[in-house]
């Protein structure tokens, strides 16, 4: 009995650990997508942030400097995305992919040049990392709590504030926002920057909280799982949070299932469990689990007439 309880608690803690970057990315992505800017570049922002967090922490011996650098790095990419998509009305998907690839390359290039460890940063000592606050085994560091807090905060910002109201409007009918005398571009820039902030935190979590350093491609598709969670949550914070937890649970089960034979089923392929978030999202997108409701103006550059 006690064993079962321990297992449950351990699995829950593992779920939360895995879900933390997903939650942060999903909340960040929500702001961007709600404003009408599609962001397939979450992965790249997170990767870049993870690298700069670890690199800065290693050089300055300060975890907090690392967090700051992570946010800064993610903001640079976010602003580039905004510059391309909002100011120059470029293709949002192309821009997102470009930034992903750029991050993939630049982290390794800079890492090798600065630390000469094949793209990795030096291992971080506990003093250079964000450590668990209450339960050492659970890994409940400050970013985990930030992620938990980010969900009601996102909900509150979107649903209860003037900014949120305008944000939702600009993603649906930018013309209405413009006609109300509000700047479409500035609203979208703010959304994109919020996205950078959250993705930066998620990146910092990966390299200086969950792990003790940066390793190449350490995001491993989590930015896309966060994107899937947004779709799965139908662009609403709490359901998206639920999707992140579900995907996190799948991942932590996948780790436990490795090589285990289940009665009646046999060995469940780990890869199947890992691909579940994508498969589920595809089923959702195909309309088998209800319709999805993306913001109407998502992906469409706003062109003001003169």
């Amino acid at each position: 009995m006690e064993e079962a309880l321990t297992l449950v608690i351990a699995t829950l803690a593992a779920t939360l650990r895995v879900a933390t970057p997903l939650v942060l990315c999903a909340m960040g992505g929500l702001f961007s997508e709600k404003s009408g800017i599609i962001d397939v570049g979450l992965e790249g922002k997170m990767l870049m942030a993870a690298f700069f967090a670890a690199a800065t922490a290693a050089v300055t011996d300060s975890a907090w400097m690392g967090v700051g650098a992570a946010i800064l790095a993610a903001e640079v990419l976010a602003l580039l995305h905004g510059f391309a998509c909002i100011t120059h009305r470029g293709n949002q998907v192309v821009s997102g992919i470009a930034l992903n690839i750029l991050a993939m390359g630049l982290t390794v290039v800079l890492g090798t040049a600065w630390f000469a460890r094949g793209g990795q940063t030096p291992p971080l000592s506990p003093g250079e990392r964000l450590n668990p606050i209450f339960f050492p085994v659970a890994g409940d560091n400050v970013i985990v709590y930030a992620a938990l807090l980010s969900v009601p905060l996102t909900w509150w910002l979107i649903e209860r504030t003037r900014f949120g109201l305008r944000l939702r409007a600009v993603g649906e009918v930018p013309l209405a926002v413009d006609a109300a005398g509000i700047s479409v571009s500035w609203l979208r820039y703010r959304a994109v920057m919020l996205c950078g902030l959250f993705a930066g935190l998620a990146g910092a979590y990966l390299s200086i909280a969950q792990n003790a350093g940066f390793s190449r491609d350490m995001t491993a598709g989590q930015g896309f799982i966060a994107l899937a969670a947004i779709i799965f949550g139908r662009w609403r914070p709490f359901p998206a949070f639920g999707a992140c937890l579900a995907f996190g649970l799948l991942e932590s089960i996948a780790i436990r299932l490795q090589g285990v034979k289940l009665p009646g089923v046999g060995e469940v392929p780990v890869q199947l469990v890992q691909a579940m978030p994508y498969l589920l999202t595809l089923f959702l997108l195909a309309g088998f689990i209800g319709r999805t409701v993306a913001p109407k103006a998502a992906g469409v550059p706003y062109e003001k007439e003169h």
Partner: peptide, 29 residues
């Protein structure tokens, strides 16, 4: 101005559309 094509956000309530751009403060309540 009331435009020929309405400048309304379909998924919003009447009240939300009404206050868009004239929210009367940073909080909606």
């Amino acid at each position: 101005m009331v435009h020929q094509h309405f400048m309304l956000v379909d998924s919003f309530t009447v009240l939300e559309n009404l206050i868009l751009g004239a929210e009367g403060g940073p909080l909606l309540a």
